[in-house]
Design a protein around this nucleic acid. Structure first.
Length: 920
RNA sequence: AGGCGGAUAGCUCAGUUGGGAGAGCGCUGCCCUUACAAGGCAGAAGUCGCAGGUUCGAUCCCUGUUCCGCCUACCA
């Protein structure tokens, strides 16, 4: 392909799909399980099977892909393990909505047919996100795609469950848990999202049993739960109330009397009235307080968070007949005002005030969750957390940025047992069976869906597969626990289950522990912490060395993107409009640590322009370069070539160093800066001058360098913009099948040239000065600008003529050398009769940059030395010496350091000022 | 309530042994110069949140404070 065949504008649509197919067909992303090369492995945070690519995925996977492509090009045996999560509750909700639309329900279908239905759906539309990840360019090893409910992974889940049970790290019991009344399942603590709202604080009169004219004022935000009260607590050292402890109060709206207890843990004397009602079955604190005070638990809500039916309500709570009729069956939100109304009718409300409080919502459906008493499975987490804390403390797992380390540690040290059972159907069914015979006389079945109701006291038989018979009675019917496991239970095993565990596969041996995990902060506790715990428990080794935590993507105003706000940026749309590479580069360059990514479309447009800039540079290269690499050592090539090689090797070094530290933003910025502002803006312009005489040796060497640097640049850029660089690389003269397989550039010492950079510095400053002069004075492009370079030595060097003529061409002017005696310490601009004359105050030396650097360093050193001297003078220890004496002592040294007399003089003046200050 | 992060140009953000205030986008002016107008060149624009402290010298270190965001939490 030649330059003429390249369109003037880069069109990603013509390119992306074609090369992605090529990569896949050729198997470039397939990792070897037996390679002896260093291995590098990332396991993907598995997107939900219900998922569709959003910007968060785009960021997460772009960063992973950059790392993976970078390491692959460095020669590592790279495995990026892809997969999908079955996403229990989320997926079940999707299918249930479909059924609802069809006028049926999961209950009507029954468990077995419902699950068939989910699998059918999964087969048909469950993999959509995979295609979307591929559009993003994700270089996963798709041959190894895993699903959390694959047979192998399911086996791993069961084995882990059994082993945890054997090690007494699992238990089943009746506890208060977070319950979603819409999903009809238990949730773990972290699956509840807290929202601050302004509610009401009601102060209610509880009459004393032995003197109903007196009452105790009790403050509550949830009057509707008072029917489940089994006591009122006061602080045992509260003088207002201590005499009441042991007495009874009458629960308003009921005929029931409940005790007043003292409880120093529950009660804060400062809050409300200092008296708290205790509802052990519907509040976490009250549950604990109830246990401490041996109070009974009265459930007043059903699984839909409705108040129980009238008979049951009356039976349990001895509620007034009228109230029972009015309250039965009401959802809590409606019961609350109703109770308020009933209480005020009986003059039982002292006051109602607005009150800030936290409301818990289901993280899947946003329904308000209720604390509910039920039988659930829990992981005894403390023994697992302990080693997981240690590995982060001692750095065996490194969290980047380190700021999140304390976040992790704080949560882990205060961790609560993990409720892992869910009352849904889609997921890994718990491998526990119960004997109907040994657990009583047969299990009841739930009317709605026929699921067995396992009594609290039933003894679980935990096994990998269904036991042939009950181990104790040998004859009873065995019924499997109807619950499934929390989705995050299987995710916790991801780093080793995807590699084949519990089989001892070559993959496991080669890639575990994995290298890096790239994830958002939002699943640090859900996922990262649990993988570390499970990895240590079952593999005896951390699951990954580094955890890179990236930011959340927000919209341009910093708002969380949500469909309801309509501020969602759809990555698929962006890829269509600007190209995948532009999106990737934008995400990488905006991903600085500790800060959310505020994505605005203009940024993407800017980087789209960047891809086009590169495209056009490629067209230029194809017009001129012949694809040969220069055999002449870098040191012998003409100056602009030495300069760009030197800059390229610096950029290369920096990009590698930044990627090493996960500074995608800085790596991207270095590449951008180099390609656009050094390579395109300066080098290509300089190269054109040399190419004007195509037959000369300089032109040939320039052509070769032009190609060599550009080709290197494409490799440097490839992890960020894989499609563009592949398309260009393939158009260039090349050997090999794909840029994917080429080596990543490494810094080369023979490319470094401080001397060429010095020459360039002179050139750049000169040209800029001349252009500025022209622009400021509105000087027409046709007229010439003269530049006087101070200094007489440089003109004796052979290359100076080249520099001088280059300056002249780029700035459209002439350059003359004048005596160094006229050197000025600053740049000046002056208008003369002859036109614009620009003088540049440089001390021209044989090695210009060395001279400049030396001067700069001298100034710095001088400033520091002067500072130290000032410090000494200000120090009382030196007061015995006269200031002038001290200055004299340092004068020689300062004189050596000082570049010019003026600087020395000014510093001395500053010192004297300081001393005057001190003496007054 | 506690913990963490942020505040630097109109916008989005870089900026570590403490000494020069920077980039991209936007804006203004000039240029369709044979890779690119999705471009080139030049320019304007900031009391580095506020108040103290340490220092010869503070965007940077310390203390306090305001505002914003996030995480954790049982204040009924």
């Amino acid at each position: 392909m030649s330059a003429q065949q390249l369109e003037k504008i880069y069109d990603p649509k013509q390119v992306e799909d074609r090369w992605y197919r090529h990569w896949i067909e050729r198997g470039f992303f397939h990792a070897s399980s037996t390679s002896t090369r260093p291995s590098y492995c990332i396991v993907i945070p598995p997107p939900n099977v219900t998922g569709s690519l959003h910007v968060g995925h785009a960021l997460n996977n772009t960063l992973q892909d950059i790392l993976v492509r970078w390491r692959r090009m460095q020669g590592d045996n790279v495995l990026w393990m892809p997969g999908i999560d079955h996403a229990g509750i989320a997926t079940q909700n999707v299918i249930e909505r479909q059924l609802q639309a069809e006028g049926t329900s999961r209950e009507a279908l029954g468990r077995e047919r419902f699950l068939e239905r989910v699998w059918e759906w999964k087969a048909k539309s469950g993999g959509r996100i995979i295609e979307q990840l591929q559009r993003l360019g994700a270089s996963c090893d798709w041959d190894r795609l895993r699903f959390t409910m694959d047979p192998g992974l399911s086996e791993a889940v069961r084995l882990v469950f059994v082993r945890l049970y054997q090690d007494d790290l699992l238990y089943r019991g009746e506890r208060l848990i977070n319950w979603c009344p819409r999903c009809l399942t238990a949730l773990s603590d972290i699956e509840v999202e807290r929202e601050d709202i302004t509610g009401k604080l009601y102060t209610i009169r509880y009459p004393l049993a032995d003197d109903p004219t007196q009452y105790l004022l009790v403050a509550t935000t949830r009057p509707e739960t008072m029917l489940g009260d089994t006591a009122v607590a006061v602080h045992p050292e509260d003088d207002r109330y201590r005499h009441l402890i042991g007495k009874q109060v009458r629960l308003p709206l009921t005929t029931r009397e409940i005790p007043i207890v003292g409880d120093a843990i529950l009660v804060d004397r400062e809050f409300g009235t200092g008296a708290v009602k205790i509802t052990p079955a519907h509040d976490f604190n009250d549950f604990e307080a109830g246990a401490r005070n041996r109070l009974s638990r009265i459930k007043i809500l059903d699984i839909h968070a409705n108040l129980l039916p009238e008979t049951e309500l009356r039976l349990r709570t001895k509620i007034e007949i009228e109230a029972a009729g009015l309250l039965a069956g009401l959802p809590v939100q409606k019961a609350r005002p109703k109770v308020e109304q009933l209480l005020s009718a009986r003059l039982a409300i002292e006051k109602v005030e607005p009150h800030r409080m936290a409301l818990g919502r289901c993280y899947r459906c946003k329904t308000v969750v209720e604390p509910l008493l039920s039988d659930q499975w829990f992981v005894r987490i403390k023994p697992l957390a302990e080693p997981a804390i240690q590995v982060v403390e001692n750095g065996r797992v490194r969290i980047v940025p380190e700021a999140w380390k304390n976040n992790y540690l704080g949560w882990m040290r205060d961790i609560k047992d993990w409720c892992i059972s869910r009352q849904i159907w889609w997921g890994h069914q718990i491998p526990a069976w119960y004997c109907e015979n040994c657990s009583g006389s047969g299990f009841l079945r739930r009317a709605s869906d026929g699921e067995p109701l396992i009594p609290s006291h039933a003894i679980p038989i935990v096994a990998l597969t269904k036991p042939v018979a009950c181990p104790s009675c040998k004859s009873g019917t065995l019924v499997q626990d109807p619950d499934v496991l929390d989705t995050w239970f299987s995710s916790a095993l991801w780093p080793f289950s995807t590699l084949g565990w519990p089989q001892q596969t070559p993959e496991l041996k080669t890639f575990y522990p994995t290298s890096t995990l790239v994830t958002g902060l939002d699943i640090l506790f859900f996922w990262v912490a649990r993988m570390i715990m499970m990895g240590l428990k079952f593999m005896g080794e951390v699951p990954f060395r580094d955890v890179y935590i990236h930011a959340l993507v927000r919209d341009a105003e910093g708002q969380k993107m949500s469909k309801s706000k309509g501020n969602v940026i759809d990555p698929l749309h962006v890829m269509d409009q600007y190209g995948t590479d532009a999106l990737r580069f934008t995400l990488a360059s905006m991903s600085s640590p500790g800060r959310d990514v505020k994505l605005a479309e203009e940024r993407i447009e800017g980087y789209r322009n960047f891809t086009n800039k590169i495209w056009n540079a490629a067209r230029f290269i194809l017009m001129h370069a012949d694809g040969e690499r220069e055999a002449v050592p870098p040191a012998q090539r003409p100056f602009p070539n030495r300069w760009i090689l030197s800059r390229l090797t610096t950029a290369t070094q920096n990009v590698n160093a930044e990627l090493q530290q996960y500074r995608f933003d800085r790596a991207a910025s270095i590449v951008y800066q180099f390609i656009w502002h050094e390579y395109c803006d300066w080098y290509l312009e300089l190269a054109k001058l040399s190419l004007q005489n195509p037959s000369g040796g300089d032109a040939r060497r320039t052509r070769h360098t032009l190609f060599e640097t550009f080709e290197t640049m494409m490799r440097l850029l490839h992890p960020f913009t894989p499609f563009l660089t592949e398309e260009i690389w393939q158009a260039l003269p090349h050997e090999g099948e794909s840029i994917v397989l080429q080596s990543y550039p490494m810094p080369r010492d023979d490319w470094r040239s401080p001397e060429a950079e010095a020459l360039f510095s002179l050139l750049e400053r000169s040209v800029a000065l001349m252009r500025t002069g022209r622009s400021l004075l509105n000087y027409s492009p046709g007229k010439s600008v003269d530049l006087y370079v101070m200094g007489a030595h440089e003109q004796n060097r052979p290359e100076f003529e080249l520099v001088r003529s280059s300056i002249g061409h780029l700035a459209k002017g002439s350059v003359e050398i004048i005596s160094v005696d006229d050197a000025l310490s600053s740049d000046v601009l002056r208008l003369t009769d002859a036109g614009v004359t620009v003088g540049i105050g440089l001390e021209v030396d044989v090695d210009l940059i060395k001279a400049l650097d030396r001067i700069k360093k001298q100034r710095d050193d001088f400033q520091k030395e002067a500072g130290r001297l000032s410090g000494k003078l200000a120090n009382p220890e030196f007061t015995e010496k006269a200031p002038s004496e001290v200055i004299q002592e340092h004068k020689d040294r300062l004189q050596i350091l000082a570049h010019d007399e003026g600087l020395l003089k000014r510093s001395e003046d500053q010192l004297r000022d300081l001393l005057r200050h001190r003496s007054t």
